[in-house]
Design a protein around this nucleic acid. Structure first.
Length: 686
DNA sequence: CCTACCCAAGTTTTT
DNA sequence: CTTGGGTAGG
């Protein structure tokens, strides 16, 4: 069937928009993704060059999905050269594609772990300054990143992140006192990044946007290669991303979609003014709205609408279901996490066996990655297949980074973090010796071959072994998969020993997958940069690569466990939202900050609107009764325990069906007598 | 100077 | 229950 026939009038109007720039304001479940897909297909069908269309999303997963679906809707291979990417990986591609323009071609992209490592190094080198601060390296990085993403100055960024936005005299005094020291450390960090040819995630955007802003030639070059820019999740763009986008107003046609009620990334500087002020900021722009919800039954939308109505912010939104009425959502009270997890497992197994639902019809959502640990343990025990979205990525696992460190130094010999990691991997080399060896290599400035230097700096057989390994890997520079093979062959013994606790169970199987992943890249630089920015999900502890990377179909039917933040754009027949308890919604972190509370409300809103037919909300009774037993605290107005702000405090009766589960003592009583245990058997003392 | 072991603390959300 | 910091022994 043709895509066009699947669109409603509003969607079609957006898809066939013929003006310059368009913002589509689309509520949850109103066919946002379908519209962006249809727009791309429409453009290509009407003669646009697919290689001059760029789709931008926030996750690689979303990008891949959109591109695949556009291609599937087009005859033959018409959409073959269509490109979809995250903001970050798109910038990375541009940096690689135009090495002279951006001048950062041989730089190494570093992930947050590496950034932290680098910041720790810097803090160590400036211990006299660092010791005066009671701010940890991670927090320094947060301030740095926040400042660059929001375009705020250092003082304001410190205020927002370290002092929760306070503006009193004491805060002022403290900020003035610590700011110079923070500045020293951040400058040192920047200097080190430059020396070692590193780009952190923010740099990717900054390098490109700075050049585009300053350089007319750059704009001209890009305008020759780009006609249409399609941006998903516009409400989550931050000032830095806006700065990146704004030169493209002149260069090409913008087609942006977003929903202010789903803006949940303000901690990363997201600014929904990019949506609200679109018309003012973008000349020749139009704004269209999509309002009909195709995803959920009306009962599910009723709860979601109710939640937004309670907000002091006016979202001007009432989702209406096209599909009509269905089951009333369920609100389940449990007394602890294990009970919750077991109930969820029961429910899924029941749906699977009795109701003809598949595992993949279930989506389980949680505020934090951490919270799903119990659930995962129960799922493993009860053999329910699952994938987790969000959280640690495949390439960020320690054992993978150990191996990749070798590839990184081959790619960029200035990469100190990788050098330290690689060298300390070997028995007998610690941090101190590693930095000494590194100093020799860096001081040589590429005059001597690195294997020779290695052999000179490391005495004995180890030196020869390490030098040979480096040499062997370097020889295969074009073939990334081969390099992984060689590295693994030499390092597997050491890896097995280092991670002996869970080597067989958890880690060993990752390396064949790493090789597959490596094989899908044509150059080492791409593998290291792009691979880092790519999502590889984990299934029952083992990595699962997206379909474009892995040809063989893995077991497809699995429950999806996701953080709410990673679940944007997902939907499922049955959706279970975990632990919607006081102190969690809103989170106890945000109790004294109205903006944070409202962001949490939107987080919950995103979660609720994922469900198609069956919505189940769980919460912990322990924390509910804690609230009620305390009544209204006498010191109201100071520290609250969340009772006043808890989102579900006054949920109207008809909106959800409540159920409370407790331990079932009966089944314990009826259980058969256990057999007697005798530990003295099997031993003859004579 | 390296490693292994013990004890303590503390857990949002993502590219 | 994992991570990190600190210490003792090699």
């Amino acid at each position: 069937m043709h895509l066009k026939e699947e669109l409603n009038k509003q969607q079609l109007k957006a898809v066939e928009f013929s003006g310059k720039h368009l913002l589509v304001l689309a509520g949850a479940g109103t066919g946002k993704t379908r519209t962006i897909i249809a727009r791309a297909a429409y453009l290509i069908e009407n003669g646009a060059n697919p290689s001059k269309i760029q789709i931008l999303t926030f996750t690689k997963k979303a990008a891949n999905e959109i591109v695949e679906r556009v291609k599937a809707s087009l005859p033959q291979s018409n959409g073959k050269s269509l490109n979809g990417a995250t903001f970050h990986s798109w910038c990375n591609q541009l940096i690689i594609k135009y090495p002279n323009l951006f001048g950062a071609a041989n730089f190494t992209v570093i992930d947050p772990d590496d950034q932290l490592g680098l910041m720790k190094m810097v803090s160590g080198n400036h211990s006299e300054v660092y010791s005066k601060l009671r701010i940890k390296p991670q927090q320094l990085l947060d301030v740095y990143s926040y400042a660059r993403n929001t375009k705020k100055n250092l003082t304001e960024s410190i205020r927002s992140l370290v002092y929760k936005g306070k503006e009193d005299n004491d805060t002022e005094y403290e900020i003035t006192a610590i700011k110079p020291n923070i500045e020293i450390l951040l400058r040192a960090y920047q200097k080190k990044k430059m020396e070692q040819r590193y780009l952190d995630y923010d740099d990717l955007l900054l390098v490109v946007s700075t050049q585009l802003k300053a350089n007319a030639e750059a704009r001209k070059l890009l305008s020759q290669n780009l006609d249409y820019l399609l941006v998903d999740e516009m409400q989550d763009t931050n000032p830095l991303q806006w700065e990146l986008l704004s030169p493209f107003i002149e260069i090409c046609n913008l087609f942006c979609v977003g929903d202010d009620a789903q803006s949940i990334y303000s901690f990363r500087g997201a600014d929904f003014r990019n949506v609200h002020q679109f018309k003012e900021r973008v000349p020749n722009a139009e704004v269209y709205k999509l309002e009909k919800n195709y995803r959920s039954t009306q009962e599910i939308l009723d709860v979601s609408n109710w939640l937004l109505e309670k907000s002091p912010i006016d979202y001007n939104k009432q989702l209406q279901s096209v599909r009509g009425s269905g089951e009333v959502p369920q609100l389940l009270n449990v007394s602890d996490e294990w009970q919750e997890a077991n109930w969820v497992a029961d429910e899924i197994l029941k749906n699977y066996t009795d109701e003809d639902r598949q595992f993949s019809d279930h989506l389980i959502l949680s505020r934090s990655q951490y919270y799903t640990k119990t659930l995962q343990a129960v799922f493993i025990r009860r053999k329910i297949p699952y994938v987790t979205y969000g959280g640690r990525k495949f390439l960020q696992a320690a054992h993978i980074k150990d191996l990749v460190s070798l590839l990184r130094i081959v790619n960029n010999p200035y990469d100190e973090i990788a050098w330290v990691r690689f060298l300390t991997f070997w028995e007998g080399i610690g941090e101190v010796r590693a930095s000494r060896i590194m100093a020799v290599i860096l001081a040589d400035e590429g005059k001597t071959d690195i294997p020779i230097l290695l052999q000179g700096a490391i005495p004995g057989k180890d030196g020869i072994k390490i030098a040979e390994l480096y040499n062997d890997v370097q020889k295969e520079k074009g073939k990334v998969g081969k390099m992984v093979d060689i590295a693994y062959e030499a390092m597997s013994l050491g890896l097995a020993f280092r991670y002996r606790k869970d080597w067989i169970e958890k880690r060993k199987a990752d390396f064949p997958v790493l090789k597959l992943l490596a094989n899908s890249y044509s150059s080492l630089g791409e593998f290291i940069g792009e691979g880092l920015l790519d999502n590889a999900e984990k299934m029952n502890g083992a990595p699962v690569l997206s379909e474009s990377q892995l040809a063989t179909a893995e077991e497809k039917d699995h429950v999806i466990i996701s953080t709410i933040h990673s679940a944007k754009g997902l939907e499922a027949d049955v959706c279970i939202v975990l632990n919607v308890s006081p102190k969690s919604f809103p989170s106890s972190w945000s109790l004294d900050d109205i903006d944070a509370i409202e962001e949490d409300r939107r987080v919950l809103y995103v979660a609720l609107t994922r469900a198609k037919n069956k919505l189940i909300i769980t919460r912990n009774t322990a924390s509910i009764s804690a609230i009620h037993s305390k009544a209204i605290p006498a010191n109201a107005g100071q520290q609250t325990d969340g009772a006043e702000t808890y989102f579900l405090t006054a949920i109207p009766d008809g909106l959800v069906l409540q159920e409370t589960i407790g331990y079932d003592f009966k089944s314990v009583k009826d259980a058969p007598e256990p057999n007697k245990l005798d530990l003295s058997s099997g031993m003859d003392f004579s």
